[in-house]
């Protein structure tokens, strides 16, 4: 699914990733842990093509990805949940926001509406269609953000700190959603409890490299 070869990435003088290798299969359920500033988010942004590494190769879905057009192709297939839901939800109403991805993928407004209501009901968010996104609570925002990603019917998920700022009930709901889905995922998290409940493999990032903690 995702293969990274010898990725190096620097911010100015500061080397964040150093000859990093990563192989992820389509059904893998992986947690990526590591201290603040160890480059976890940077790594995910490289996978999505939002940052370009100084050296190394990114292979996703069996093809080497270099240009913006290469990455545009995979962005619907690999769903990415951002750390801050306010970055992700930009439309005033939930229905518009969830429909944004499907419409970009070429669905007609009617198809998009159907996709939205299916996605929302699968997350037990039916009835949220006309809610105003900036008036949702933190937990609701996170779940709606997840809906906007899932509405694109991705084959794999990357979640950046999904439980940050969530209460236990919403966290538990997130765990249940992830375990119930048949998608593979890569989760960045500091939440030990969440990691043990959702991940089959834990990768530890240190000194710009990845080490396997348990398998």
């Amino acid at each position: 699914m995702i293969h990274l070869k010898d990725i190096c990435f620097r911010y100015g003088q500061n080397t964040v990733l150093h000859n990093l290798r990563l192989d992820v299969g389509p059904k893998d359920r992986i947690a990526l842990v590591g201290s603040n500033g160890s480059g976890k988010t940077t790594l995910c942004h490289i996978i999505m093509g939002l940052l370009t590494p100084q050296s190394g190769e990114v292979h996703i879905l069996g093809k080497k990805r270099v240009t913006e057009a290469d990455f545009a192709e995979i962005r619907g297939k690999i769903g990415f949940l951002f750390q801050d839901s306010d970055d992700q939800l930009f439309c005033p109403t939930v229905i518009e926001d969830v429909a944004f991805g499907p419409l970009n993928l070429g669905q007609t407004p009617e198809q998009a509406r159907r996709t939205v209501s299916e996605t929302l009901s699968s997350l037990e968010l039916s009835g949220f269609e006309e809610r105003i996104t900036y008036k949702l609570s933190g937990g609701e925002k996170r779940l709606v953000s997840l809906a906007t990603v899932l509405a694109m019917q991705p084959q794999f998920l990357i979640l950046d700190e999904p439980t940050l700022g969530l209460d236990e009930i919403t966290s538990a709901r997130l765990v249940e959603i992830l375990l119930r889905s048949d998608l593979g995922y890569l989760i960045i998290s500091h939440d030990r409890d969440f990691v043990t409940r959702t991940a089959e493999k834990v990768l530890y990032m240190k000194d710009g490299k990845i080490k396997v903690e348990k398998g």
Binding site: H45, M48, L50, A72, R75, G76, G79, F80, F82, D87, Q88, F90, I95, E96, A99, F100, G101, L103, N104, L105, P109, A112, R113, T148, V149, M152
Partner: peptide, 17 residues
């Protein structure tokens, strides 16, 4: 925000629901 929009297939056009 632009990054988040790109990850959801934004290519410079808004479609109307």
């Amino acid at each position: 925000i632009l990054n988040a929009m790109k990850c959801r297939g934004f290519k410079g056009r808004f479609y109307i629901l």
